[in-house]
């Protein structure tokens, strides 16, 4: 792994009034991998995404994108640097066609030279939505919307993609498709930071896993290292949830 990480989070704390949502978390994401952020509900995964994308200000600590500190920048400036986010609940521009959704992402997103139509077409093909290009986004199924959400994030030409539970609520076939798409995105040189509850998917696709619990990082490592960490087992996998993880390890 390179010494030039794409994302460094250093001692970040986030407090909502009295509630400590993120407690002194530090983590480093190397370039070109799929890293996952896991942890029980309320562990602070989505909050961390909000902090990285400038959606909410950090209370303390620093976030570096490459060498550049980004905590405190406006959301659209962070997007212009090359960080994209796909929401858990897809938020398409419903009245606009699939192609226009992607075109807008291509026009904005990471700053620099661009070929909007080519970018949109590539994202369309990647997500397997080519036949639906002229359909209004509001008329698509949940699975299709999830792929559009990922495709639109990709169309911003990011270097770092934050994907928030892309597999939630999908059936096994759709999940498999999405995992394939994520791998393709990584192959194109984009680093992915994933929040996901589907343990089978996480273990299959991740190069590196961070475990959050109650706002603190309690472990990190390869999927194998993490699943055997007693603290992780106690905090997270020890609950009645671990069935999928066990089957993934088998």
């Amino acid at each position: 792994m390179s010494d030039d990480p794409i994302l460094r989070i250093e001692h970040v704390t986030k407090r909502f009034r009295g509630l400590l949502a993120i407690n002194d978390v530090s983590l480093v994401v190397p370039r070109g991998i799929i890293a996952s952020l896991i942890g029980p509900n309320g562990a602070g995964k989505s909050t961390l995404f909000n902090l990285i994308t400038g959606y909410a200000p950090v209370t303390a600590g620093a976030i570096f994108y490459g060498e550049r500190p980004i905590a405190g920048l406006a959301t659209h400036r962070i997007a212009a640097l090359g960080i994209a986010r796909a929401f858990q609940i897809a938020r398409p521009f419903r009245d606009l066609s699939v192609a226009d959704n992607l075109r807008i992402a291509g026009m904005f997103g990471k700053s620099g030279a661009r070929d909007v139509d080519a970018t949109a077409r590539r994202a369309l093909d990647l997500a397997g939505l080519a036949e639906l290009a002229e359909t209004p986004a509001g008329a698509m199924t949940v699975g299709q919307l999830r792929r559009l959400e990922i495709a639109r994030a990709v169309a911003t030409r990011p270097e770092l993609l934050l994907a928030d539970e892309p597999c939630a609520g999908l059936n096994p076939t759709e999940t498999a498709e999405l995992v394939g798409i994520l791998r393709e995105i990584r192959a194109s040189g984009v680093t992915i930071l994933l929040v996901e509850h589907d343990m089978a998917a996480v273990m299959e696709v991740s190069d590196l896993v961070f475990v959050l619990d109650a706002g603190s990082k309690i472990a990190e490592g390869t999927p194998a290292q993490v699943t055997s960490d007693p603290r992780v087992v106690a905090a997270y996998l020890g609950t009645p949830e671990p069935a999928p993880a066990a089957s993934a390890g088998a």
């Binding site: 994308t53 959606y55 406006a74 959301t75 659209h76 997007a79 212009a80 994209a84 986010r85 929401f87 938020r91 521009f93 419903r94 009245d95 606009l96 807008i104 992402a105 904005f108 997103g109 990471k110 700053s111 639109r152 911003t156």
Partner: peptide, 12 residues
């Protein structure tokens, strides 16, 4: 369509 998402995509 969705101002928050627009910002997230880099629209100023």
């Amino acid at each position: 369509e969705d101002e928050d998402t627009a910002r997230m995509l880099g629209v100023p």
